[in-house]
């Protein structure tokens, strides 16, 4: 419904402006703090206008945190998790929606229930499995009394170990399921009449149709994976495998008593770490909009 009431319009604009201020102000403060030198940033009150130390601060913090290498680590992990999630989610939703088999709903609910269990809840067993990946099989074999040798596979300090536990996703599966349910049955039947088997139908009909969906999922999951902090902190002990978010901690003031917080550097590092997910969101936004415009069924 479209209403033409100037007063109401004015009010909604004011509310919107307040919202913008609330959202933007903290970021602005972060940016301003990152452009001053150590002395100015610790003044009370802190100046609310950018200083002249922008390039110095960013260059120094880039060196100090070794962001060159660590950002690449983060990128590998984030891309790996995103790709893994998209593939697994699409495949499991395909299995749940398009195939009739016993216990179908049981499997769906099993996946759906894990939606409520974040990584933090299962972090101890997950760590145990990553530290010795084949241990569950060894336990089963021991229990059955089979004296088979199972080698020890340690995934700590590897990309695989960083990526795999984050890949399983109920959210993505659910998103795909809901999307697949909106696709008319006749499309699957037409594909059947055309002679396309399930794999062909999946690759050539479902996947192209779910592009928008996939862009949305990829964006959310990239940001999620990039922002992971706890899991890399547990799995990585080798400094070379550290991710960008882990480095942030090292920039923020250390634990030594009396050491003053170096806020200008910490803020600069924060902004640097924020840039890649921001770029992904901006870049993917184009796909959302196109997807929304083209929604003629």
């Amino acid at each position: 419904m479209i209403e033409r009431t100037p007063i109401l319009n004015a009010i909604t604009h004011v509310i919107m402006l307040i919202g913008v201020v609330v959202a933007v102000l903290p970021i602005a403060v972060v940016f301003i703090a990152s452009t001053h030198d150590f002395r100015t940033v610790n003044m009370v009150p802190m100046p609310l206008w950018p200083g002249d130390q922008f390039f110095e601060n960013y260059a120094r913090v880039w060196e100090k945190a070794d962001f060159g290498a660590k950002m690449i680590n983060s990128l590998i992990v984030a891309v790996g998790v995103t790709a893994g999630k998209i593939v697994i989610a699409a495949l499991s939703a395909f299995a749940i929606v398009y195939f009739k088999y016993r216990l179908r709903m049981v499997f769906f609910w099993l996946i759906f229930i894990t939606l409520m269990l974040p990584l933090e809840v299962r972090i101890v067993p997950t760590y145990a499995v990553v530290a010795d990946t084949l241990s569950p099989f060894r336990t089963i074999l021991d229990f059955l009394g089979l004296p088979l040798f199972v080698p020890e596979v340690n995934l700590l300090n590897t990309y695989t170990g960083l990526i795999l536990p984050l890949v399983a996703t109920a959210t993505g599966t659910f998103l795909y399921r809901q999307f697949f349910l909106t696709i008319p049955d006749e499309l699957a039947e037409a594909a059947k009449m055309d002679g396309a088997g399930p794999i062909r139908f999946f690759l050539e009909v479902l996947i192209p149709l779910s592009k928008t969906n996939m862009a949305a999922l990829a964006t959310i999951m990239f940001v999620y994976a990039w922002n992971q902090y706890l899991w890399p902190l547990l799995v990585v002990t080798d400094q070379d495998m550290a991710t960008a978010t882990m480095q942030l901690k090292k920039i923020v003031p250390g634990p030594l008593f009396g050491q003053p917080p170096i806020w200008n550097e910490a803020m600069a590092a924060t902004l640097l770490v924020m840039i890649p997910p921001l770029l992904v969101v901006i870049f993917m936004q184009g796909y959302f909009v196109r997807g929304l415009v083209n929604t003629d069924k």
Partner: peptide, 8 residues
């Protein structure tokens, strides 16, 4: 098919 079922 009744609703054509074309691949969009």
């Amino acid at each position: 098919f009744q609703n054509y079922a074309l691949y969009p």
